[in-house]
Design a protein around this nucleic acid. Structure first.
Length: 103
DNA sequence: CTGGTGACCGCTT
DNA sequence: AAAGCGGCCACCA
């Protein structure tokens, strides 16, 4: 399995109404230093319908600018639609951060 | 084939 | 406390 495949698998495992951080995904993917790779992997995003990249946020709980593929409002709007409350473009990681089982 | 970059994170100064 | 640099993988020139 390629590195990207692992990353995609982890992103797909993110439950609805929760958000995951790049570091978390990278760690679950197998290496904590893959954070950059995670970003690139989601950048290519071969299956946006199954890979909900908008559920992935940085360590600060904020979404990157380049994430606005269809409008910055859209992503935060999607998160709110999922049940995640977004404050000023930031998410409460303390409450909405996805806790993996392997963690 | 080599070099550089990218939606990042963590440690060190 | 803030800023800088290193590090992993994949793709483009």
């Amino acid at each position: 399995m390629n590195t990207f495949e692992k990353i995609y698998e982890v992103v797909k495992k993110i439950p609805k109404g929760k958000v995951a951080t790049y570091g978390q995904i990278a760690l679950l993917a197998g290496n904590p230093h893959w954070s950059r790779v995670v970003g690139y992997a989601l950048h290519v995003n071969p299956d946006p319908e199954h890979i909900h990249c908008y559920r992935v946020v940085n360590r600060n709980g904020e979404v990157s600018s380049s994430f606005a593929f269809g409008g910055e409002n859209m992503q935060t709007g999607l998160l709110q639609a999922e049940g995640v409350e977004v404050k000023n473009g930031k998410v409460d990681l303390e409450k909405y951060r996805w806790r993996s089982e392997n963690e």
